[in-house]
Design a protein around this nucleic acid. Structure first.
Lengths: 203, 203
DNA sequence: AAACTATATGCGAACAGAAGGCGAAGATCA
DNA sequence: TGATCTTCGCCTTCTGTTCGCATATAGTTT
């Protein structure tokens, strides 16, 4: 779908609005009146251009036969930084934040605060329906509720993806893979770097 | 994709912002004004460089024909229709397509053809890391490779989410839940309505 | 350190083609 | 028949392209 010029965009927007409002397309004369065009030829040429660029369809020589082609552009989404990988027991392979990649994430999947995205390496969370290669959206906050999935910094070194439980003054970090053991630590040995609020996967 | 200079980055960001805001690309003159460049030749050369480095596309000698090339992992997002629910053995609770909801999906998760989104009901695909409540992005195509996950129409009635295998001239529809049995049918009893190309989940 | 080279950045002017516009006449549809 | 769409020729304005020239800037070689 080719890019539009300013005028073409204005006209397309008008078509959109008109059809939305009336349920049928405007006539050439109506379009022309809206834009103070005295010649229908001008309007006709515009429609032809819009058609060639793939934004509308028209039946030949039919009144008000303009149809909008669904545009599938620009939803509400945010570009979040893709900071690197996370795996059980391995530090994040940090990417230089300056020229890091970003990835578009639907706003619906994002929490309130700052967020970023990590790519999952390995199957440590397989029983939580997170697999190798998935993108996890992480909200940057320290406060965690029991059972939430967190990015945890262990002893200042290892960064892992685990479920978080407070138990008798200690903290249990629970992998979701039956082949792996939970980790019990004191509350001071673990620092929560963020909470997983969403997951995306591409096949 | 080659690294950008400071100036090139500034200009690319401006293009991004302008297109986002107006729905069409700026003219050379507008770009020049924004950066206090008195010569269009300068702007033109910048665009040429951006194009050679692979960040934009341009049609030759066409007005406002700059297009942003989606970056590797990032890109933009698209509003796809949220058509309803899908579960094992229960038809899609179809929503009127005219005034259906939409949901923003990163372009990176979407296939080539038309796509839509369904919400998963039940845990029939739990072993494929798809759980109750997940959003699956479905590409609208009939051709399936072995092992792909499909939206299948059975006997013209039931719509289910299953993995698809061709075996000895028959078709096996495999749920990914050990508590459920695979379904064997003839190739004419099953119609593939689409292929799952992505998953999104919100906690 | 100095010389060199390639690239990026910048200017202004001349030019060519695309986009936008006009009016009139003809063609179709309902 | 009346409402609409199509086509044609011609014009103006907008916009992109090219050319020659000049100055930074960074990396390489001597």
């Amino acid at each position: 779908m080719l890019p539009l010029t300013k005028r073409q965009r204005e006209i397309l927007d008008y078509l959109n609005e008109f059809i939305q409002q009336h349920g049928y397309a405007p006539s050439l004369e109506e379009i022309g009146r809206r834009f103070n065009l005295s010649s229908l030829a001008t309007v006709h040429k515009h429609l032809t251009n819009l058609q060639e660029k793939g934004f509308i369809r028209r039946a030949w020589n039919r009144s008000r036969s303009v149809e909008l082609v669904p545009t599938r552009a620009g939803g509400r989404a945010v570009e979040l930084p893709l900071l690197g990988f996370v795996a059980a027991g391995v530090p994040i392979e940090a990417v230089d934040p300056a020229n890091s990649e970003t990835i578009a994430v639907p706003e619906a999947l994002i929490g309130k605060g700052d967020s970023y995205v990590l790519r999952v390496k390995g199957d440590s969370m397989i029983d939580e329906q997170i697999r190798d290669g998935d993108f996890v959206i992480v909200e940057n906050r320290k406060s965690v509720d029991n059972g939430e999935m967190v990015i945890a910094l262990l002893g200042g070194v290892d960064v892992t993806l685990k479920k978080f439980y407070r138990e008798n003054g200690r903290v249990r970090l629970q992998p979701a893979n039956p082949a792996m053991q939970p980790i019990m630590v004191g509350p001071n040995d673990v620092e929560v770097q963020g909470v997983v609020v969403g997951v995306m996967r591409k096949y």
